[in-house]
């Protein structure tokens, strides 16, 4: 099984790394957004929160939008069908995709941190940086799962427009664009249930050293479980509909 997992990891990583046209802009884009907006919007003590928000935004953009949703595109390929004829548990292939996606997510987060240092002049200390990276690694799991859920529930063509439709509102509702204190009250009531808010809270707690907000961990776990359930349902529906 370990052999199988390694083989999946190597295959996914090779396919990805040999497409620099895909991964280079992917990991640079959140840092660019931060440089244009995040670094300008907040300075002083608020600056570090903006940095954390854009780090989460990077997780979302890469994990949810790029990786998760792309599942919709390549689930119907002859290659995937051939892979299904090989022995071994199918979920290992999924696990490998998630791990590789996390690698790119963390590279994008690192770019945001670099932009924080050189563009925003925000330099978190060692423990803050470590906690922020750990928080980003943690929230990348629900981000990728949600993306895969959307990608497998929607048709191959609908997945991208649908995620466009969800992506920005989710970022806004979660307080990644404007801090939660600036959200209107009605929006705030909704905000606390969004996965993006939970991701943000985790990242903000990481940079200001607050205790890990338990309620948001539960919210994230809930979204993750929901995503796994949707993926499971969608997969069995595909097997019936597409494979017959």
């Amino acid at each position: 099984m370990l052999k199988h997992l390694i083989a999946e990891l190597v295959l996914s990583a090779r396919v990805l790394l040999r497409q620099p046209g895909f991964w280079v802009p992917t990991i640079l884009f959140p840092a660019m957004l931060y440089s244009f907006f995040g670094a300008q919007m907040a300075d002083g003590p608020a600056g570090i929160y903006a940095l954390a928000s854009f780090a989460v935004y990077a997780v979302l953009g890469v994990g949810f939008y790029q990786f998760g949703v792309s599942v919709a595109q390549d689930r119907e390929t002859p290659f995937v069908l051939w892979q299904h004829t090989l022995p071994g548990a199918l979920w290992l292939g999924w696990a490998a995709r998630i791990v590789v996606a996390m690698g790119v997510v963390l590279a994008a987060v690192a770019m945001v941190l670099l932009a924080g240092r050189f563009v925003g002049g925000i330099v978190p200390d060692g423990p803050e940086t470590a906690r922020l990276i750990a928080a980003c690694a943690l929230v990348s799991v629900p981000a990728v799962l949600m993306g895969i859920a959307l990608g497998s529930a929607a048709s191959a063509r609908a997945a991208v427009p649908l995620s466009n439709l969800l992506f920005l509102p989710l970022a806004y509702l979660g307080g990644l664009w404007v801090p939660p204190v600036a959200l209107p009250e009605s929006v705030e009531a909704l905000s606390v249930w969004t996965p993006t808010r939970a991701m943000g809270e985790l990242a903000w707690a990481a940079v200001d050293g607050r205790a890990l907000p338990g309620r948001y961990l539960v919210v994230l776990a809930g979204w993750s479980l929901l995503s796994v359930a949707v993926i499971g349902l969608a997969q069995s529906r595909h097997r019936r509909a597409m494979f017959g």
């Binding site: 052999k3 199988h4 190597v10 090779r14 071994g88």
Partner: peptide
């Protein structure tokens, strides 16, 4: 992006 040698290694590993 993949070579036949890599594919063969992958299938054998599976």
């Amino acid at each position: 992006q993949i070579t036949p040698r890599e594919l063969i290694a992958y299938a054998a590993a599976r």
